[in-house]
Nucleic acid binder design. Structure first.
Lengths: 341, 341
DNA sequence: TTGTACGCGTTATCAA
DNA sequence: TTGATAACGCGTACAA
């Protein structure tokens, strides 16, 4: 007699025996209660409670070739922008039977591809992935995946499946337009990391300035170094050293904007009178600073929430109203661009 | 004949056939190459490559009652403090065969317990959990779990298994001592969230002030509201309204400290001359602000890194040098507490 | 609505 | 060092 011991915990067979039914009835009662009569369902639920039965997700995944995992891939764990979205995803998914599997691609396309491969290997219920700049191989993997796929944080023309986000090009354009409207003339751009979304913000910014006749490539200062507050102070210092007539900057993100503010304060430059500053994302601190900082507000929590809602709808067989959801953005004007003309 | 289709991808049996060996030999070659002869190992590795075989983690977990999952439970996804540690955990774990399973307890002990239950149900290779304040039930679950368990972010007397972190009590004490040394007399405390670690920082702070003869409970201002920069400005305003003679504050964390700085600037109070400010954690922005902000530096990345190293060592059967690892902290003095006496 | 029989892909057990 | 066989716990297919 060769018995293996297993994990020792109750199985669906134990529940079935206690409830006096077959295992498949228990299985059905747990996954879709409507398929089992009230009478048996009650008995089964009682047995589950008494035995403290917990479904064995690996066995379930193996038998059904479908796991309850939702794979989520983001390029950064420390960027606040993704933190809010992740929080929303966890908040939404924790209700149901799903498990989040989180991957960090570190802004490296090949790492992203590897993660997608690994996650798809688990037969996920759905995939959520940041951005629209996947490699061809990654796109193909996801297209062939038999599960809903949502690209988040931005929108574009060519979704793998679904998309929730906003247009970074339009966001950058709005920032540029705003600075011109406030009367600033020599308007610069500070950019860190310069991932594809940053590039699109820059393109939108350029577009606005060209239209306004104020585009000057000499005022654009970017680096691939990752973003930080200190870097904002550094970059604005460098740009001013190059062009002392600079009178406003659009910062790639809020960390840089805060750093630029500190840099100006150290150099004795008055914000907003001698220098206008606008950031991107509108993190909580932007409203609290002194002077308060203008920014482009994006609803990152909503992006995560809606992404999960779209997934749930598709899994429930609902026909989606739209595959692409543009949540837009909103310019929050504050003191840093409100100069007395 | 009733064939089910499976996931369609190559299985260990396909590899075995191609290599001309049995399945179990392939299994062994993959898990512990030293158990298989060079000759067969080479053939197997070739077959794996040719078929593009990827092990099926659910099947493995089912058969072995042990998954490659490392469960990680933190109380917040948006708090930068945990973001750095998480990044380290992902960096370390991405190398090996492990998968991170991340849970967000939202600072709710019951949610934490539920997550622990769920994760343990997956037969994890290890568990990492923030803090030392688990419920009795959670402790018992983890104690009975047949895997390494590391409590992170703080150290204490009574580890479930292992611990990596530092003493929040001592950190708070160092902050209080520093403010007294700099000559501040009426020293307050600003605290948000007030989770157990915040409480221990406060206790350390009180201890220092009592020793220095400067303890005044009237100068302690706390709230259970979650921390933010805006809140820092608000709290220091409230505390000053109550006690206009306040001349320094120890802020529970850096967000509050930055907010307190902004609050002072708005009210026309000079930092550090009329108000000393010290934060906790030393986020990157603290060195960049104007004036720069003193803080207690903690090495959050190292905490994650060391936690994973301890896990790997224990899984490799090594005898740990120590079950409790205190990584300490370091006071970073900056302008916000450097007044001209 | 309920049940029977079997397979999902892997590893533990025992034997050689 | 290698292999045959039987689990691991559950869901699918088919039948009643």
């Amino acid at each position: 007699m060769r018995k293996r011991k297993g994990a020792g915990r109750p199985t669906i067979a134990d529940v079935a025996e206690k409830a006096g039914v077959s295992t498949i009835t228990v299985s059905r009662a747990l996954r879709d209660p409507s398929k089992v009569s009230d009478h048996l369902r009650r008995k089964i639920n009682n047995a589950v409670r008494k035995l403290n039965y917990v479904p064995h997700s690996h066995a379930s995944a193996l038998a059904s070739t479908r796991s309850n995992i939702v794979g989520v891939i983001v390029p950064s764990l420390t960027n606040n922008v993704f933190a809010d979205t992740l929080r929303a995803i966890y908040d939404e998914l924790d209700q149901g039977p799903f498990q989040v599997q989180l991957g960090n691609s570190r802004y490296v396309a090949k790492d992203e591809e590897r993660l997608v491969r690994t996650f798809l290997g688990q037969g996920p219920s759905a995939m959520i992935i940041a951005g629209t700049d996947q490699t061809d191989a990654t796109r193909e993997l996801l297209q062939n995946a038999e599960c809903p796929v949502v690209q988040i944080m931005e929108v574009g023309d060519d979704p793998i499946d679904m998309m929730v986000g906003f247009s970074h090009f339009e966001g950058g354009k709005a920032a540029g337009t705003h600075l011109m409207q406030k009367g600033y003339k020599r308007i610069g751009f500070l950019g860190a990391r310069m991932d594809p979304r940053s590039h699109r913000r820059l393109e939108g910014f350029k577009d606005a300035l060209r239209i306004g006749g104020r585009y000057d490539p000499d005022l654009i200062m970017t680096t691939t170094v990752s973003s930080s507050v200190s870097l904002g102070a550094e970059l604005i210092g460098q740009l001013r050293a190059r062009r002392s007539d600079l009178d406003a900057v659009f910062c790639n993100n809020d960390d840089l904007a805060l750093g630029a503010l500190f840099g100006c304060q150290k150099a004795g430059i008055s914000v907003p009178d001698d220098m206008g500053i606008i950031g991107f994302n509108d993190l909580e601190m932007m409203a609290a600073s002194h002077p308060s900082l203008t920014s482009i507000r994006t609803d990152r929590y909503a992006i995560g929430k809606r992404a999960v809602e779209m997934i749930k709808a598709e899994l429930d067989g609902e026909v989606p109203e739209q595959k692409i959801l543009d949540l837009g953005f909103e310019l929050q004007q504050r003191e840093s661009t409100s100069r007395q003309k």
